[in-house]
């Protein structure tokens, strides 16, 4: 259960025009870290992650009135963050290319090598490279489940896909990652 009490408090602040900005700052400081890393894992580049994070914040703030409370604030923001990350990838892939184009995967791997810190382990790098080889929907499902530990129901709310599709996406992703590691780990 995601800090429900805090969400209720934040929602009350957001509904009060005098408290709205303070509520929004509190909302971002509560979930911003998690959302940043979700975006960063998807787009890899620090600069792109910053842009997507800012766009996400603008959209969240401008759409606060349309938040109906059908899902948690976190799931709602996570959906917007996911869309912004996918938007960055679409721009990178170009107008007529799929998000699963190998050129896009190669460019993300290049960025991964260009941006990784010196102190990280070889295993971490190979693991990330394995993830970047996955088709985007499988990578998204893997990240949501493995890193952010979302339930399949939350994942379904974020992606609009059904639970069984997400389960199979995650299952195939895990198998492919294991295979990649076996073939490439030193």
């Amino acid at each position: 259960m995601r800090s429900k009490a805090t969400e209720i408090e934040i929602l009350e602040m957001l509904r009060n025009p005098q408290e709205r900005d303070r509520g929004f700052r509190l909302l971002l400081s509560t979930y911003g870290d998690k959302l940043y890393w979700h975006i960063r894992r998807m787009v890899v580049s620090r600069e792109d992650a910053e842009d997507a994070m800012q766009e996400m914040s603008i959209k969240v703030y401008s759409k606060l009135d349309s938040f109906k409370g059908d899902s948690s604030l976190f799931t709602w923001m996570y959906t917007i963050a996911t869309n912004e990350a996918l938007q960055v990838l679409r721009k990178q892939a170009g107008l007529f290319r799929s998000l699963d184009d190998s050129d896009l995967a190669n460019s993300l791997v290049d960025t991964l090598y260009a941006e990784n810190a010196v102190e990280c382990s070889a295993a971490e790098i190979i693991f990330q490279e394995a993830l970047l080889q996955l088709p985007t929907q499988q990578r998204l499902a893997f990240n949501m489940r493995y890193y952010d530990e979302l339930t399949y129901e939350e994942m379904a709310a974020v992606t609009g896909k059904n639970v069984s599709t997400l389960k199979s996406n995650y299952h195939f992703a895990v198998e492919k990652v294991k295979k990649f590691i076996k073939e490439n780990a030193i």
């Binding site: 960063r40 894992r41 971490e124 890193y147």
Partner: peptide, 14 residues
């Protein structure tokens, strides 16, 4: 198995 291999850390330390 995967957690044991690479953990959940990202290779970019911010």
């Amino acid at each position: 198995e995967l957690e044991k291999f690479a953990g959940k850390n990202m290779p970019y330390k911010e």
